[in-house]
């Protein structure tokens, strides 16, 4: 299968998230949206209008937000706890650990506007650490969809999955990649494009950039495989090991610090099972300068040309 960017039109994945959430909620009266004054930023306006009682807004209080989510789950509800990813994870990390993951509460944590989506608002509002933080906690799935179709599929999946989930949803517009009807499978990486010289692994807003980078590389005679690693935990070891063995080099791209995120997770698998040269692209361990999300991703070497450049440098290191 060779998947390319289907159109240049960009879509805000939050719309797909809330549309799907409402579809699920209309079937299942136990679905509750929980938010921290984030009705607008989580795009829950239509949900509130339709089911005012089922929109639990705790105000600006994230510790209570997550605790209330756990309590709702205990009381037989299916809570989708929605908040800006930076506050949801940073402010309420201990609640995520103790009340949700350790207690095995059936809570869906929806980190909205993740990564550097808030751009110019700066590092206080960037959620560049959430993969690392959540991934370090046992018993919670970490999922970052790449387009509106995968967002919808992952949201639908999360409602049927019994257990804690962290769903990372960006507001940065992304083109359609998957076809309608795509189903999400936990822990399964999608090979979007096959290749033999190296593999680019990405998720979220970086996947379409990875595909464009592979297209640039193809023009230079380099065959790049592209894996969409929507599930950071549990990780698809088989597809990563196969990529290492088949292509011999891996570039990772993420809207996250390079410490502890997707790149680290891939490196852990590679180093244990099939060591090959790697390059981890992401936020390089510094607070981001002022700039839009798009500017920042380019700035950190993750424009399609930037990713292709890193790939060429990595190829030079390949034995």
């Amino acid at each position: 299968m060779e998947l390319s960017v289907r159109s240049t039109e960009l879509h805000d994945c939050r719309d797909a998230f809330t549309e799907t959430l409402m579809a699920i909620a209309s079937e299942n009266p136990d679905v509750i949206a929980v938010c921290n004054d984030s009705v607008g930023s989580s795009k829950l306006g239509a949900f509130r209008e339709r089911w005012p009682e089922r929109l639990v807004n705790v105000g600006i209080a994230e510790q209570n937000l997550v605790g209330v989510g756990a309590g709702l789950a205990n009381g037989g509800k299916l809570p989708f706890v929605c908040a800006a990813a930076c506050f949801l994870t940073g402010r309420a990390l201990e609640q995520i650990k103790a009340d949700v993951a350790y207690s095995d509460a059936n809570v869906k944590l929806c980190g909205i506007s993740s990564g550097v989506a808030y751009g110019e608002l700066g590092p206080t509002h960037h959620s560049a650490e959430d993969f690392a933080w959540i991934r370090a906690i046992p018993n919670i799935a970490v999922v970052a969809p790449a387009d509106r179709i995968e967002t919808s599929a992952a949201t639908e999946w999360s409602a049927s999955f019994e257990g804690p989930v962290f769903l990372r949803i960006s507001r940065v517009g992304v083109p359609d990649l998957f076809s309608e009807g795509h189903t999400f499978e936990l822990g399964k990486a999608d090979m979007l494009r096959d290749g033999s010289d190296l593999t680019i692994i990405a998720n979220g807003t970086l996947t379409h950039r990875a595909i464009s980078a592979a297209e640039l590389l193809a023009r230079r005679g380099v065959s790049a495989r592209v894996l969409n690693l929507a599930t950071v935990r549990p990780i698809d070891e088989d597809r990563i090991i196969a990529a290492a063995l088949d292509t011999g080099a891996i570039v990772t791209c993420e809207e996250h610090t390079i410490f502890g995120g997707l790149g680290s997770a891939v490196a852990e698998v590679v180093v244990d099972h099939a060591p090959v040269p790697m390059k981890r692209l992401g936020i390089p361990g510094s607070f981001a300068p002022t700039g839009s999300a798009s500017f920042l991703l380019d700035e950190f070497g993750m424009s399609p040309a930037g990713i292709a450049q890193s790939a060429m440098e990595l190829l030079a290191r390949k034995a």
């Binding site: 509750i32 009682e53 510790q63 989510g69 756990a70 709702l72 205990n74 009381g75 809570p79």
Partner: peptide, 17 residues
Amino acid sequence: GHGLPVGVGMAVAAGLS
């Protein structure tokens, strides 16, 4: 400081049901 927020969620669930 974890029990009361969870208790609030439980009581909200009871009310909704």
